[in-house]
């Protein structure tokens, strides 16, 4: 039995206009064109999308998924980036 050498693609679908493309899963396909067609048949059988992106999985560069990853440490101590850092008297309107 021969093993298929079709590469793995990750699939991103825009649910409707105004929304971001969101990762929905993956599939195997021989090339980009077929990946798109397979993605349509697999992930949008019930009008789940208006636009699809497919990208070969090995073209994705990812951070480590751990929430405690030091990669995300630089933003951890910068509380002054959030609006709640600033105390403003309650009677100041529209702020």
């Amino acid at each position: 039995m021969t093993r298929s050498s079709w590469p793995l693609y990750e699939v991103f679908v825009r649910g409707k206009r105004g929304l971001n493309h969101v990762h929905v899963g993956s599939l195997h396909a021989p090339d980009d064109e077929m990946a798109l067609r397979n993605a349509r048949d697999l992930y949008t059988r019930r009008n789940e999308g208006v636009s699809i992106w497919v990208v070969k999985a090995d073209h994705i560069t990812a951070s480590s998924p751990d929430e405690k990853d030091p990669f995300f440490a630089p933003s951890g101590d910068k509380v002054y980036r959030h609006p709640t850092f600033y105390s403003i008297p309650e009677d100041v309107p529209h702020l």
């Binding site: 021969t2 298929s4 050498s5 079709w6 021989p30 090339d31």
Partner: peptide, 9 residues
């Protein structure tokens, strides 16, 4: 079919 599609790609 799988082989032909892979070869075409």
């Amino acid at each position: 079919v799988r082989d032909a599609a892979a070869e075409y790609a």
